[in-house]
Amino acid sequence: MNEKQLEDHFNEKIDKDIRIEPKDWMPENYRKTLIRQISQHAHSEIVGMLPEANWISRAPTLRRKAAALAKVQDEAGHGLYLYSACETLGIDRDTLLDQLHTGKAKYSSIFNYPTLTWADMGAIGWLVDGAAIMNQVPLCRASYGPYARAMIRVCKEESFHQRQGFEIMLTLCRGSKEQKKMAQDALNRWWWPALMMFGPTDADSPHTEQSMRWGIKRFTNDELRQKFVDVSKPQADLLGITIPDPDLKWNEERGRHDFGKINWEEFYNVIKGNGPCNKQRIDARTKAWEDGAWVRAAASAYAEKRKSKQQAA
């Protein structure tokens, strides 16, 4: 088949919702876009471990400590599946990590915000994992097989994390005055960054159209954001805390909530590296990687020695 026929065949599969697998022909841009999207997601999982790991040592009960450890471990696991899915596209994990450390690759900006109190563990689970699920559930039907399969596992665990986060918030909101204050303060700080997780408005989202055509994005940023607001408002009411948006109200006509304008200047600032923790997050990841170089070298040297011993025997 020539290039044109290959591409027609590829498009036909996309139209029929037939999964694309690693050995199938695919347009170079489809491959590149997927590498960008999947690695960005993998990096987000790994960097996303840091703000929550920050509270493991201070978790207020042993049950919460165990849950926090398990959660951050799940995130490392998600990073692993996603790096593996990405590797099926012909790029290795070390190269991807290098792109993260040098700032060539992005990760979700939400993780550039600090976790200042225990309530942030609740707010992250409730809002950040909640927003992530909304972004990710449609990706379980992504056109690229290994990605879609990785996302199915990721989403199952994320929805567990989300319930766990909400339960932390609920416990705080039913607790003492200080605990409720903690919960409200966390909502105040995480609400807008959570809305920004869906990305720029549709009008400013350069990749959306092509990605939707390729079946690696199923809904637009604004559609998902609206859905998130609609789902979160009654949850905040149930908790008895207030979403920090005076313009947030139910619109009878649309049957949806109206909400205030997002501070896009902040969004682009954080992406550019000026968020409260951009430097700390990348420094921490780079340090872990560099400090681990001798460990990885030792593991390879040992494996080599074992191999030659076995061959000699």
Partner: peptide, 15 residues
């Protein structure tokens, strides 16, 4: 050991 979480030398060993 929990202090290592997120800072391990290899992702598999972090886990």
């Amino acid at each position: 050991l929990g202090e290592w979480c997120g800072h391990g030398p290899i992702l598999e060993q972090d886990i």
